[in-house]
Amino acid sequence: MEVVNQVMPTAARAMAFFGGAEDGPFVMVNLLKFKAQAEYADGSGAGLTGAEAYARYGAGVRKLVEGLGGKVRYSGAVTGLMLGEVEELWDLVALAEYPSLAAFRAMAMSPEMHAIEHHRKAGLAGQLNIRTKPGKGF
């Protein structure tokens, strides 16, 4: 299995994701890898780590998620790997629950998201976003 961290989806990937069938609530699993130092396009944020820049984004996105009726369910540092192999571990795992794909799309396209996304881009080296659907367990 090849794993490719990305900061932004391709246009085709975004269209396929948002063009999917609406099927109610879902949880997004976010596997995050931070830059050692934040890289703001305008040169601001000197001295911030990537994790610190992303934390600015995280504080803003939490408000957006909760404002649309969602919840940040979990956020924690990756501290080890028991099974499998990866070249590098992710730095953080976050789980966010959204009421619907439409709500997630509205948040992603909102002016409020646009106002904070520069912190995300400054701090992230890459990430995986995995959409999951609550089930009956295993």
Rank of each mutant, 00 (worst) to 15 (best):
F18Q: 10
E85I: 11
L81T: 07
K63H: 09
E22M: 15
D91A: 09
K71H: 09
F18N: 13
G20P: 09
W90H: 13
A59L: 07
E22V: 10
W90Q: 13
A38P: 08
D42H: 03
A94S: 14
G84N: 03
A108G: 12
K121A: 14
E117I: 13
N129Y: 11
M82R: 00
V3S: 10
E39C: 12
G126Y: 11
T132K: 07
E87R: 15
N5H: 13
V78N: 04
R62A: 13
M15E: 14
E52H: 04
G20H: 09
A16F: 09
A94Y: 05
G126R: 12
A115V: 01
M107Q: 04
K71Q: 11
P111A: 12
V7G: 06
F17A: 11
V4W: 08
A46I: 09
Q6M: 12
Y40T: 07
E52W: 05
T10F: 04
R62V: 13
L83T: 04
Y54S: 03
Y57F: 03
R56W: 00
G137N: 00
D91V: 10
G43A: 06
H114C: 02
N30M: 03
S75T: 14
A11Q: 15
R73N: 06
N129A: 11
E85L: 11
L68M: 10
G126C: 09
P99A: 04
G126H: 06
S44I: 01
V3I: 15
I130H: 07
E97G: 00
I116F: 03
H118N: 03
R13S: 14
P134S: 03
A94W: 07
F34D: 08
Y57Q: 01
A77G: 01
G43Q: 02
D91S: 08
L48R: 10
K33H: 12
A77C: 00
V86S: 08
G76H: 06
A21C: 05
